[in-house]
């Protein structure tokens, strides 16, 4: 019980520290929105085939950028943040106190999830206000579950990847190299209607395409059912569990000597 209270307290302090750096906070918030605006400016006039009909490009990009926002707040933010805390000796210092290690990481994860929720809210608001895109009420549960599974999986993967990042200076490079190519080949940045089959098959090995697939379904206006993409959610969850196990086994509290 005390552990949980301490863990929630960590979230509060992480959050306070985050908003103390307003420039960083502003651009973290604005970054996905910039992509939403740019992609709509570039491709806004075209239409896309989806299951059951055709939609405007905006209907594609709102869920895509939602995926980007969650991955940015969870995976990228946690991985880089943990590497800097580790190099700075903060993780080691806290390990010498009675605070359980998991409670410290819970603070980072909890803060990341709050950030992700805020980003998703901003993206949804922009979708409704400027692009006429909304989550249909019949797929709302699917949207929320996809959001939860995606956020959890990418938090776990963010913790896991820190094990292979040698130092904080290398963290942005490693994290971007691991995620940007996937964002391009997984129906996030670019609608993959004419991509070679082998490429989409390759992309399906990784979690981003499943997150994007499940999210696109939840936004599909032609969806008459609940919109749950069980296979995608299962694949995403499997990646999350794998990330958690890898993190539990290989997580380092100190910089590499």
């Amino acid at each position: 019980m005390r552990g949980l209270a301490l863990a929630l307290r960590q979230v509060r302090y992480e959050n306070a520290a985050f908003w103390r750096n307003p420039v960083s906070a502003f651009f973290t918030m604005a970054f996905p929105l910039m992509f939403l605006v740019i992609f709509n400016l570039l491709f806004g006039s075209s239409e896309l085939d989806v299951e059951g009909g055709t939609v405007s490009v905006s209907t594609f990009y709102v869920p895509s950028i939602t995926v980007l926002g969650v991955i940015g707040a969870c995976y990228t933010n946690i991985a880089i943040g943990v590497c800097f805390s580790r190099d700075g000796g903060l993780l080691k210092r806290v390990r010498g106190t009675p605070l359980p290690g998991w409670a410290l990481l819970f603070g980072k994860v909890g803060h990341a999830v709050l950030l992700a929720l805020l980003l998703v809210a901003i993206i949804l608001a922009a979708g409704v206000l400027f692009y006429g895109v909304d989550v249909p009420s019949n797929t709302l549960p699917a949207f929320l579950v996809t959001l939860a599974v995606g956020a959890a999986a990418f938090c776990a993967l963010g913790l896991a990847i820190t094990a292979v990042i040698p130092n904080a200076d290398a963290s942005p490079a490693v994290v971007n190299a691991s995620i940007l190519p996937l964002l391009f080949i997984s129906d996030v940045f670019i609608p993959l209607r004419d991509a070679p089959a082998w490429l989409t098959t390759f992309a399906d090995v990784f979690p981003v395409s499943h997150f994007a697939g499940a999210m696109h379904s939840a936004f599909n206006p032609f969806e008459t059912g609940s919109g749950f993409e069980l296979f995608d959610l299962a694949a995403l969850a499997a990646w999350g569990v794998a990330g958690l196990l890898l993190a539990a086994r290989f997580f380092r509290w100190e910089p590499r000597a």
């Binding site: 301490l6 307290r9 306070a16 103390r20 750096n21 700075g88 000796g89 903060l90 080691k92 210092r93």
Partner: peptide, 29 residues
């Protein structure tokens, strides 16, 4: 860990918290 105190050669704290907040954070442990 509740009975010892450690001052490492170099160890970070969050640069954006105040002295008071930092100490209260650790006191809470």
């Amino acid at each position: 860990k509740e009975r010892i105190g450690i001052v490492l050669q170099s160890a970070g704290v969050d640069p954006f918290l105040s002295v008071e907040e930092t100490l209260n954070l650790f006191r809470g442990y």
